[in-house]
Nucleic acid binder design. Structure first.
Lengths: 144, 144
DNA sequence: ACTTACTCTATCGGATTAGTAGAGTATTCT
DNA sequence: AGAATACTCTACTAATCCGATAGAGTAAGT
């Protein structure tokens, strides 16, 4: 299951993507409109800033704003940032590879390839899901 | 990521499936051969017994043994037993459905259908992966 | 200067994970 | 019957993670 942190991050990013042309948005506005505890959100936004997705402006008229193209930010990235690897086994991740300690022999492991397939399918789908596409999808659904 | 409990359970089940015709297997043998802490394994085997996969025999010559057909036990079931739902959002599980509390409107949620697709693909793959198939796959890999 | 608003450090309760200890109960062999 | 075997149950623990909060600090704008 996704952590709340990741869900909050996705919602905050979508919110900021929709307001991209309106300049910085207050943390307190994001918190209020997306139902996120403000202090918790502050930490999340900071992580997103440090990861290069957002920038912030201090003082009056300040706030956070998206600096990446909404098409270039996908769910896989956001999830990895907060929840770590998407794979279900450490031995089928690319970036964070680790042996399964209890595994006798990775070469003949009967479950490894299933989990590798699952991982690949999942990552593919999540990568295709970028902020722009999600926003389109939302308004599409809203019209019915 | 899968918990150790789930991984241990899978390994123990595979081990018992291979020894299906040999009668009961001691907890201590399973623990030793699969590198699982014995006391921890005891709890796992008990859960698997209560879930109807295994049965046990007490006293001398006792132990645990598989009572289901290896083709009828798949990874999705074992994972659900120990780690709960496979879906990444509570609103896309069938058995354990729950609203996402921070979700404003499920009908127009832009990420719901991606996660539904991911869940369905994953469950499908994991269901196809049963004990018999995994054992076949292992010996197949061992021959190269 | 003063206000606004982001940033950093520390802390916290509760839940979960992985594992341990030990007494208890049922079964079988002699 | 009694001993030995082997599963079963209850309780406990250490470590880690999750979600959240508090408060002081710092930077920017007016």
């Amino acid at each position: 299951m996704l952590s709340k942190k990741t869900k909050y991050a996705i919602n905050a990013m979508l919110f900021l993507a929709k307001r991209k042309e309106h300049g910085p948005v207050l943390i307190s506005s994001i918190a209020e409109e997306q139902n996120i505890p403000q202090k918790f959100l502050e930490a999340i936004l900071l992580d997103l800033k440090n990861a290069g997705y957002l920038n912030s402006k201090k003082g009056r008229g300040g706030g956070y704003y998206l600096i990446k193209d909404p098409e270039e930010v996908n769910l896989a990235e956001i999830m990895r940032l907060f929840d770590g690897p998407i794979a279900l086994l450490p031995c089928v991740t690319y970036r964070y590879y680790e042996r399964c300690e209890e595994c006798k022999d990775e070469e003949t492991c009967g479950i490894r390839d299933v989990f590798l397939q699952v991982r690949n399918e999942t990552v593919e789908k999540l990568k295709a899901s970028n902020l722009a596409q999600i926003i389109d999808r939302e308004s599409e659904l809203g019209e019915n």
